[in-house]
Computed example of a mutant assay.
Amino acid sequence: MNTTSTRVAIITGGSRGIGRRTAERLAADGFAVVVNYARNEAEAKEAVDAITAAGGRAISVRADVADEAAMGALFDAAEEAFGGVDVVVNAAGQMSLSPLVDLDLEVFDRMFRTNVRGTFVVNQQAARRVRGGGAIINFSTSVLGLLLPGYTGYAATKGAVEAVTRILAREMRGRDVSVNAVAPGPTATALFFEGKDEETVARFAAQPPLERLGTPDDIAEVVAFLAGPGHWVNGQVIRANGGLA
């Protein structure tokens, strides 16, 4: 159990989109935050600067989620900077859309490497290092319930994420660490808007009973709940999608 006053969170994919908003939200809740990024150092710096300007504590660390040595170094950096790790949010991911029959297998392999191997590697480090009372939070997708054509490869990778999440929650017995996943529906991020025309976006926005797209803030609120002191939700996939299937 962490007996220090400051809790520490690592957010992979924390430099943009849902990951960045989650980093800012957890920092506002008093977490010291480690913003992990893959390539864009400038975006990561912006995220850290925004957190520190608001009075929070944050550092950025570049590392490939699918590289076990790099992930080990990321956790080392968090422990060196802030004394330990209490929450790990694995928000890094790739999405490429295509009917199964047309999907380039090299594209599928890249998605699989980030979304499945990356989740496995991040969770492996988290399972070894997260302190008692902590949380591991993965990202799935509500597409698994919606069964949308064109999402076959992406949904397949996220089905693996859900399996890892549910089983790891049971493997962590006795550690006082919860393991859950958040499965957003259509959310207004650059990743979602890429390749979609206005008509397609409007159609997605009209589908939920709440009749809008989700926002990164909506998803960050769910992550903050799972990362917080209410520790009884465990081994679950929370479908944060405004009422879709």
Rank of each mutant, 00 (worst) to 15 (best):
Asn2Ser: 11
Asn2Thr: 04
Thr3Glu: 15
Arg7Cys: 02
Val8Arg: 14
Thr12Asn: 03
Gly13Met: 02
Ser15Asn: 10
Ser15Cys: 03
Ile18Asp: 02
Gly19Val: 11
Arg21Pro: 03
Thr22Asp: 02
Thr22Tyr: 04
Arg25Val: 06
Arg25Met: 13
Ala27Phe: 04
Asp29Ile: 09
Asp29Ser: 13
Phe31Glu: 14
Val34Arg: 03
Val34Tyr: 05
Asn36Leu: 10
Ala47Gln: 05
Ile51Thr: 02
Ala53Tyr: 00
Ala53Lys: 10
Arg57Trp: 00
Ala58Glu: 11
Arg62Trp: 04
Asp64Thr: 02
Val65Glu: 03
Asp67Glu: 11
Asp67Phe: 05
Ala70Arg: 05
Ala73Asn: 11
Leu74Arg: 00
Asp76Leu: 00
Ala77Val: 01
Ala81Val: 03
Ala81Cys: 06
Asn90Asp: 11
Asn90Glu: 04
Ala91Leu: 08
Ala91Gln: 01
Ala91Ser: 15
Gln94Glu: 07
Met95Glu: 11
Met95Leu: 10
Leu97Met: 10
Pro99Gln: 01
Leu100Met: 07
Asp102Phe: 00
Asp102Gly: 07
Leu103Gln: 15
Leu105Asp: 12
Val107Cys: 01
Val107Leu: 01
Arg113Asp: 12
Thr114Tyr: 06
Thr114Trp: 04
Arg117Phe: 10
Thr119Leu: 10
Gln125Arg: 06
Arg131Phe: 01
Ser142Tyr: 03
Leu148Phe: 06
Gly150His: 02
Thr152Gly: 15
Gly153Asp: 08
Tyr154Arg: 00
Gly159Phe: 06
Glu162Val: 08
Ala163Trp: 00
Ala163Arg: 08
Arg166Asn: 13
Met172Gln: 15
Arg173Ala: 15
Arg175Tyr: 08
Asp176Leu: 13
Ser178Cys: 12
Ser178Pro: 07
Val179Asn: 13
Asn180Lys: 06
Ala181Leu: 04
Gly185Asp: 13
Pro186Asp: 14
Ala188Trp: 03
Ala188Cys: 04
Leu191Lys: 00
Leu191Asn: 00
Gly195Gln: 08
Val201Gly: 12
Arg203Ser: 14
Ala205Glu: 10
Pro208Cys: 11
Glu211Ala: 15
Glu211Tyr: 06
Leu213Phe: 13
Asp218Ile: 09
Ala220Phe: 05
Val222Gly: 13
Val223His: 05
Phe225Val: 12
Gly235Met: 03
Ile238Phe: 11
Leu244Lys: 01
